Amino acid sequence: MICGSRHCFDLSKDGYINLIPHAVRSKYNKDLFTSRRETSRHGLFDPLIDAIRNKIEDTAPSRSRELRILDAGCGEGSHLAAILSALQKPDAPDILGVGVDIAKEGIRLAAKSGVPAIWCAADLAGSPFADRQFDVILNILSPANYQEFQRLLRHDGLVIKVIPGSRYLQEIRALFQGEAANQPSPAKGLADGRTIDRPSPAGDSTTPRPVPATGRTAELFGRNFASVDVQHVEYNMLVAGEALEHLLRMTPLSWGVPEEAIQQAAGQGPLRVTFDYEILCGRLNE
């Protein structure tokens, strides 16, 4: 790839572009990103992905042209991959997905996934993209740079930021704090005495509904963007076996927790886990 100043950037052997001019240290390592990818594969983020897809379909610019989506802080790319797949429709205009993260380990995994997107190791504080390039900017459970978002977003574009609600992974937090976590009923977690090794949503567990945004993050978002819409998405899933172990390992809640405690928590049986998000959508102030 060649920038406006004629600098050339080659794809790495793994298929991503490195646009970070200096070494970066991050606690987000390959193991964490691998577990997040596997957590996504088990379907634990599916209701969130569905809500984001609906937001894009309902409020994004007209699909008469190519839709350009930037995932700022994409990690290993599983969220962007799922959203791109959900938005694809026969005979619809093309979609260009671009995933950016400062953690190279995440970008490496994203590039190796085979998902047709552009994966970049880059710093949001100085992103390499030209002005007004994206119709949608996603910022999912990741730090934001609103000044850059305002520069990169097209005039009729949409910013979608996802922040954790107060009950997000509350059972895991309690588990690692030594408190009693919620336990599922045996009837829903066991079959013939065996653990079902997959997530199982509760019958009425997905309840998207508008609620007032709270907290400093939401207030800051509202000061930077107009026409802000807030949607609260909360659901719970019964998680066990491999899916539970990956969920435990993908969250910073497990940082500093002894390996023995993580293995013990993963092996204790099905756990009903709460996923609680606020989705903030906004446009440029004009």
Score class of each variant (00 low, 15 high):
Arg65Phe: 08
Ala86Thr: 04
Ile17Gly: 06
Ser35Cys: 11
Leu48Trp: 11
Arg37Asp: 07
Leu19Met: 12
Asn54Thr: 04
Ala82Gly: 03
His22Tyr: 15
Ala60Met: 13
Asn54His: 05
Ala60Tyr: 09
Ile49Ser: 11
Ile95Ser: 03
Ala23His: 15
Leu48Thr: 01
Gly43Ala: 04
Ser26Lys: 04
Thr59Lys: 09
Ser64Arg: 12
Pro93Gln: 14
Pro93Arg: 14
Ser78Pro: 00
Ala81Thr: 02
Phe45Ala: 03
Phe45His: 10
Lys55Asp: 06
Ile17Lys: 08
Ser78Leu: 00
Ile20Asn: 15
Lys89Glu: 14
Arg41Phe: 05
Phe45Met: 06
Thr39Tyr: 10
Gly77Glu: 02
Ala81His: 02
Glu76Gln: 05
Asp91Trp: 08
Arg65His: 12
Arg41Gln: 11
Arg41Val: 04
His22Cys: 08
Gly43Glu: 06
Asp14Met: 13
Leu80Phe: 02
Leu32Gln: 09
Asn54Tyr: 01
Ala81Arg: 05
Phe45Ile: 00
Ala60Gly: 15
Ser64Pro: 00
Ser78Glu: 02
Ser85Asp: 15
Ser26Ala: 06
Ile49Pro: 04
Lys55Asn: 09
Ser78Tyr: 01
Ala23Cys: 11
Leu19Pro: 03
Val98Glu: 02
Ala82Val: 00
Arg41Tyr: 07
Gly15Cys: 11
Ile83Pro: 01
Pro93Glu: 15
Phe45Tyr: 15
Ser85Val: 11
Asp58Ser: 12
Arg53Ser: 09
Lys55Ile: 08
Ile95Tyr: 05
Ile49Arg: 11
